[in-house]
Design a protein around this nucleic acid. Structure first.
Length: 476
RNA sequence: CGCGGGGUAGAGCAGUCCGGUAGCUCGCUUGGCUCAUAACCAAGAGGUCAUUGGUUCAAAUCCAAUCCCCGCAACCA
């Protein structure tokens, strides 16, 4: 069995699970399932990113012990497994003792390689908020809450990672791996970013101000900046620094991430790996963002889509179907209740109805017993395989639904329900071919809508085709 | 001159590299069928391909300029 390792990014636990993360983990799940069906041995990792300033502040605000706070959130995210029918094998939490040890060992490797040094880190401080502000928080160079106050500049001594050293090695890595980042325009984006020159980045925080992080080895005054520790999860989940076992078997792997993570995944993390003398990732797949009703999701607009609510209303498979087919696999997409309804209707009317009508005819005319047809599907399968290699779940599903559409067309054009009155053998032949198409459809849809696809296969696998209740009952 | 993506039928997109009568899905209208979850099948309507100028026998596609939208602008996870 060929080992296949796929991992999502770790969601930061300062908010409830977001539909955008649901998209990411469903994409990863589809790949994991697909590879399992191909006979690969799959390790599928996800988890939670639990350190850093924002979490520390949020826990204080909610009056909770920080560890208790993150425990609560980790459990919440783990509930996605059931809600979305996910098959991840690993759930790494960055507050796990093993992960912390790995992060420290990683730090030491980079340090030993001469890539970690101290430097001054400048922060902008708003006296009004009594908080440090990042540039992206500022409006016209001022604190948006206190625009009448001048910001103070404060220096802080931090540890820095020698990112600038890795411009050439990263360029070489990209050159040697022309498919390193998918899609290609994201790859171009990161290449031009690296070509423009790299600045060393800060990888620690002063513990006094922000204690919620992995201690920097050999310096009790600093904790790691959350990025540095979080990225190490991709290997700590494999048991690293133990280089035997899962690490040896599964690394390097495929990383799935949102477009906001392009730099961290495809440049910073790769430089860190090079520094620690670890093989770079195999590939990075970047997906887009989901808008809601055409607008950015925000609490103030009240258009935030909660994956749990969605599943309660439409069911797991329909939500998976929507995210994998409606949303462009590589680009931004939109969620709207109307489109969700339409997509559900499509499942019911095209696929569900096809399964029903063929089963009904088989039952009515031939007691459910049809001839076994074994059409050669290798050409279609090759196309589907290409879609998965390109992380194009939308086209993958489109192609299967082309077969659904073909099958519905055949029924109308050849009208086996009419033909059976004059040519029973002819009708049986048509239905048998249709049943074979349905089995292909069911098999191919297993990574996309696992429960429904399996149900289809169950109904059509045996000696006798089973007539059952609607797989996707119409919604009123 | 910060970087990148984009502007093609009501909606979402393909086509642009390698110019040659504008295509897909959904929605809409009409017709057909009755096996089926009132589902399915077929036909049709609907577009100055952001704008302006240029090259060409011919431009959504090449060139130039302009307008508009969306990200990012690194230590914000």
């Amino acid at each position: 069995m060929t080992p296949y390792y796929i991992t999502t990014t770790l969601p930061y636990v300062n908010a409830d699970p977001h539909i955008g993360f649901a998209l990411e983990i469903i994409q990863a799940d589809a790949l994991a399932r697909y590879h399992r069906l191909q006979g690969d041995e799959v390790l599928f990792n996800t988890g939670t990113d639990e350190h850093g300033q924002k979490i520390y502040e949020k826990a204080i605000k909610e009056g909770k012990d920080t560890q208790a706070y993150v425990d609560e959130y980790a459990a919440k995210f783990d509930r996605l497994k059931e809600a979305l029918n996910l098959t991840y094998t690993n759930f790494i939490r960055t507050s796990d003792p093993n992960h912390k040890k790995a992060a420290q060992e990683f730090w030491n490797r980079c340090l030993a390689n001469g890539d970690i040094h101290k430097d001054q880190y400048q922060t902008k401080y708003c006296v009004g908020c009594e908080l440090e502000k990042s540039d992206s928080e500022l409006v016209d160079g001022k604190c948006p809450v206190h625009p009448n106050l001048e910001l103070e500049t404060r220096d802080e001594e931090n540890y820095f990672f020698a990112f600038s050293k890795y411009q050439k090695p990263l360029q070489d890595l990209y050159l040697a791996n022309p498919d390193f980042v998918i899609p290609d325009y994201r790859f171009n984006e990161i290449k031009s970013f690296v070509d423009a020159g790299l600045k060393d980045f800060s990888i620690s925080r002063v513990k006094e101000k922000m204690p919620w992080g992995v201690p920097v080895p050999g310096d009790e005054n600093h904790v790691m900046y959350v990025w540095f520790d979080a990225l190490v999860n991709y290997i700590s989940t494999l048991g690293w620094p133990n280089e035997e076992g899962d690490f040896k078997k599964f690394w390097p792997g495929v990383q799935v991430a949102g477009k906001d993570n392009l730099r961290q995944q495809s440049a910073m993390w790769q430089a860190m790996l090079l520094s620690a003398s670890i093989e770079p990732s195999k590939q990075v797949f970047i997906h887009g963002f989901i808008t809601s009703g055409g607008q950015k999701m925000s609490k103030s607009l009240g258009n935030v889509v909660d994956p749990f609510t969605l599943v309660d209303e439409f069911g797991t498979d329909a939500v998976r179907y929507y995210l994998l087919r409606e949303i462009p696999s590589h680009d931004d997409g939109d969620y709207s209740a109307d489109r969700m309804e339409e997509r559900f209707a499509e499942l019911a009317n095209q696929l569900g109805n096809l399964v029903s009508r063929v089963a009904a005819m088989a039952g009515k005319y031939f007691d459910g017993k049809l001839d076994r047809v074994d059409r050669d599907w290798s050409e279609q399968n090759a196309k589907l395989d290409l879609c998965m290699k390109n992380y194009d779940f939308k086209t993958y599903t489109d192609q299967i639904f082309q077969v659904v559409s073909d099958a519905n067309e055949i029924i109308d054009k050849k009208a086996p329900f009419k033909l059976v009155k004059t040519d029973e053998a002819g009708a049986k032949k048509i239905l048998s071919e249709l049943a074979d198409m349905i089995r292909f459809i069911g098999q191919s849809l297993l990574p996309i809508i696992p429960v429904s696809a399996q149900e289809i296969l169950n109904r059509y696998a045996g000696e006798k085709i089973i007539v059952g209740d609607p797989i996707f009952p119409r919604r009123d």
